[in-house]
């Protein structure tokens, strides 16, 4: 896995996001579109695609897309 495909997968899941909106350093929770629904979508996407189960607490702790990518890579 690499961070670019990881970002593409997340963007593909969020109809609300224009491709290219998410960058490694983007703080995803600060996006205008962000909601608890998106947190659940991210958890489901990562479980389905990478077989890694994140919790709501994990997401609260993380801020950037890169943080998210790193934790998925570590736990995989």
């Amino acid at each position: 896995m690499n961070i670019n495909t990881f970002i593409e997968k997340i963007e593909a899941e969020f109809d609300e996001l224009e491709p290219g909106t998410l960058q490694k350093e983007t703080s995803f929770k600060d996006l205008d579109e962000w909601s608890s629904m998106h947190a659940l979508i991210i958890i489901a996407l990562i479980d389905t695609e990478y077989d890694v189960v994140l919790t709501g607490e994990d997401l609260t702790r993380l801020s950037s897309v890169e943080d998210l990518y790193t934790i998925v890579k570590e736990r995989k």
Partner: peptide, 15 residues
């Protein structure tokens, strides 16, 4: 049931 995958399936497919 693999609930994460079914959740995504529904969210993608129904719209």
């Amino acid at each position: 049931m693999k609930s994460s995958a079914i959740f995504l399936f529904a969210l993608r497919t129904v719209p």
